[in-house]
Write a protein that binds this DNA or RNA. Structure first.
Lengths: 217, 217
DNA sequence: GTCGTAGGTTACGGTTGCGTAAGTTACCTC
DNA sequence: GAGGTAACTTACGCAACCGTAACCTACGAC
């Protein structure tokens, strides 16, 4: 044992004994990071344990296995993301403002919880056919759909087509978030403003200098 | 499909001896299907071999391993998709028409080569950090960027922002394709028309009954 | 200060799936 | 119909990981 030194890459985070809760949270953190970096299958239980400065059975004790840990990690991320998006979409106001807020909410999430977002995007624990991220997207899309349907009626457009447009908007925002996560060459507020600009005005009627209508931290 | 008999799940496609080329192509087909259905890691070499009615070493003979086979499969798909998209984008004409054609090209691809598209979207052979699909997208985005930059100058918009909009458009189209692949509740031409409608006119100025401007098979 | 228990360890069994060595069969050529 | 070669097989070695059984150890309560 001895080992004050870390062998290969493992940064032995803790050394001391912890309470169950603490250890559990720590394992979740460590796992999150690893899953984000290397994906589900490429991450091994031993690696997780090592990086938490603990031995393998501890992981099994808390989560019953890799899948168990992964499930909890994903569940938390899904909930967190869904919460902020739903929050943004269910404040009342002009559809344009809702869009703006939802976009900002996603970008915030991408910024603050990059690892989590990366996990969701990667998804792929083979088991569930419906990737959890896909189902999150379709959940959000259905919220957007309702907003759009109302808006369409007002504008004398066919509400039957709302699902398509909902899907497109969600896709646009989601993939833009994904892209922004890696490139990061533009400011968050700018990305959001352009997002809204394109979605609202279209290429034919774009504002030259789009600005946000919402005050934000 | 010249299937003779299937046992449990493995559809032993061939029984007879083949030439090297034939076998190679057959293995690529089989692999493509399996990778699309189960992903890279979940697919085993034995499974591929079995489904091709052949034994494992044959696969190693032709491709040197699972990764080798996968690489060829992905490479072909990337090329194919990139070709049709690039083709659509490099015909000259109104930007709106280009968008329309590119959208249709993608949807065609999704329709005709569903397995391939699913593989690309899944991607994830751990190795290359830059998922091949991501790099394809950014490739396409850069093409779109140039088209947009020209268009922006004409419209007195800032060409510096073209990359963002390019990314958004590509994201919108790509994720819509992904969604359409699974849902399939709308007709291809309709999806394309709505795609163009949103991108071009925006939510504020949508046409009630968008129609395509291009004649298509 | 002993003792119960939560927190932790070492060490192993078992499966899975990759990759290869060595040998076999059909087919084509002369 | 002998033999060479391309196509293919059986059989195995081996490494990685998962998961578990069995055994320690710090530490607060009494």
């Amino acid at each position: 044992m001895v080992t004050t030194a870390d062998e290969t890459t493992a940064t032995t985070t803790s050394r001391a004994r912890m309470t169950g809760k603490q250890r559990r949270e720590q394992l979740l953190e460590v796992g999150r990071k690893l899953f984000a970096d290397k994906g589900f299958e490429a991450t091994t239980v031993e690696e997780i344990a090592a990086k938490a400065g603990v031995s393998k059975p501890v992981v099994y004790e808390h989560f019953g296995g890799k899948e168990g840990l992964y499930a909890v990690v994903v569940d938390r991320e899904i909930r967190a993301l869904l919460d902020v998006i739903t929050g943004a979409l269910s404040s009342h106001g002009h559809a344009r403002v809702l869009l703006e807020q939802a976009a900002l909410a996603l970008l915030d999430y991408v910024e603050n919880s990059t690892d989590g977002f990366r996990i969701l995007v990667r998804d792929s624990p083979a088991g569930q056919s419906t990737g959890s991220f896909a189902s999150l997207l379709s959940d959000v899309a259905s919220q957007v759909e309702h907003i759009l349907a109302a808006e369409f009626k007002r504008q004398k457009l066919d509400p039957k087509t709302a699902p398509i447009y909902a899907q497109m908007l969600v896709g646009m925002v989601a993939l833009t978030g994904q892209w922004w996560m890696d490139s990061r060459k533009f400011k968050k507020a700018d990305v959001a403003a352009h997002l809204v600009n394109l979605a609202w005005n279209g290429l034919a009627g774009m504002e030259p200098k789009p600005i946000l209508r919402t005050a934000r931290k």
